[in-house]
Structures are given as C-alpha cells and as structure tokens.
C-alpha cells in the first residue's frame, strides 16, 4: 500500500517537474499577490507584524487551490484515471500518493516564496524557526489532504476549477485560523497558545482518516 502510494506520488512529482504547469502558476500567483497586498496593507505600518502572518496564509491557500485542482484533473487526459482505477492500486493508496505529491509541490512553492515575503514585509521568522516549519507542514497537509479529496470529488465537473475553492475554503477555516495565530506568534515573538497546535494536529488526524476511509467510495463507481 505504501509502496503503491509512493509510486503514484513519484509519478505525479515527475509529471509536475516536467511540465511545471501548476508550479509556475502557483509561484507567480504567490508573488503577485504578495505585491498586491502590500498596496492594500502598508508593510511599513507599525502594526504590520500583527497581520502579515495572516496575509501569508491567504496567499498560500490560493496557491494551494491551484495545485490541488490539477491533482486529479491531470489524470483526465487520455483517460488515465480510468486506467488507474482498473489497476491493482488500492484507492486509498492512490489518494494518499496524490495528496503527498500535492503536499510536496505546495511546500516547494511556499518555501520558495518565503524569502520574498520576508523581504517585502520586513519580517523575520528566525525567532522560532522550528515552530514556523511545524506550522507550515501541518497546515500545508491540512490544505492538501482536504483539497486532494475534493479534487477527486469534483474531477468530472465542467466547473471544477470554480467549485473546488467554494467547497474547500469554508472547511479550511479552522486550520487556517490556527496557522495565522501561530505565525503571528512567531513574527511578533509572543508565542501563541499551544491550543492552536492541538487544533491543527487534530484537524490533520481526523480529516486524513476520513479521507483515506472514503477514498474507495469516491474512486469507484
């Protein structure tokens, strides 16, 4: 099962590194949004440390929607999804492989865009780097696991690019709020309550379990 999931993830990553379709789109969207937001909210303002973390997560979640949208949509060309479902790979492995690939791609985009954020908004994350990395990983997994699930649910729709964010963002509000609070804590140097960490971990566990359990239902007719 893990071997099969890894085969799927490796295939997705290889495809993405060749075509760079969602990598490029997500990365340039991230940078453009960071620039645009700097006009809406003054990075030189005194209270900028209070809200810049929240802004970062807004930008990251937009990038995440672009990436998870492609996850199952990329299997539509030449009916590859049908061929995958006819293969011996268990549905849960197929789902997990795709979620892991999305996670790694989104992490790549986030880490690449991070220096731009730090420079544009005069922010240092070095106060608590481990805390920030943990927040980044847990939240990115929350975004990708739910996003990949809904990518599978909406893959046959004509309007999937529109539907996915409408369906997923409301459900992602709790982990994103937690990420915003934790990141604010890292930026201002006043650590946020550990309750937010528990919320993130709880969300990841519950929704990963639910998604893996329901993958079979979603991926079989």
């Amino acid at each position: 099962m893990i071997a099969a999931a890894w085969q799927i993830a490796r295939k997705d990553l290889r495809q993405e590194l060749r075509s760079k379709e969602s990598l490029n789109a997500a990365l340039s969207l991230t940078v453009v949004l960071l620039i645009l937001f700097s006009f809406a909210f003054d990075p030189a303002a005194e209270d900028s440390k209070q809200w810049s973390g929240g802004l970062l997560w807004l930008v990251y979640s937009f990038a995440g929607a672009l990436i998870v949208n492609r996850s199952f949509a990329r299997e539509l060309m030449n009916d590859c999804l049908e061929a995958l479902r006819a293969s011996p790979v268990p549905s849960s492995a197929l789902f997990l492989g795709k979620a892991v690939a999305c996670f790694l791609i989104l992490m790549g985009v986030e880490l690449t865009a991070l220096p731009a954020f730090c420079i544009f908004y005069d922010v240092s994350l070095l106060g608590a780097p481990l805390m920030f990395i943990a927040t980044l990983a847990l939240t990115t997994w929350a975004v990708t696991v739910l996003g990949t699930m809904f990518s599978a649910l909406t893959v046959n729709l004509h309007m999937r690019e529109l539907m996915l964010p409408v369906l997923v963002y409301p459900m992602l509000i709790p982990p994103l709020v937690a990420a915003i609070e934790l990141t604010r804590g890292v930026i201002t140097g006043e650590p946020a309550s550990e309750i937010w960490f528990r919320l993130l971990i709880g969300f990841d566990i519950i929704f990963t379990a639910l998604a893996v359990a329901l993958a079979e239902v979603v991926l079989t007719d």
Binding site: L146, M149, L153, T154, L167, P170, M171, I173, P174, G202, F203, I206, F207, L210, L214, V217, V218, D221
Partner: peptide, 18 residues
C-alpha cells in the same frame, strides 16, 4: 448521490470540528 454523500459527511465532520 455518491459524491454528495461523501461531501455531506465531510461537511458534518467540519461543522462538529468548528
């Protein structure tokens, strides 16, 4: 029927979670 049932289960889980 199948996909919206899955969505409803996720929806309920997330309402409880929230």
């Amino acid at each position: 029927a199948k996909n919206s049932a899955v969505m409803a289960i996720f929806a309920f889980a997330s309402v409880i979670f929230t």
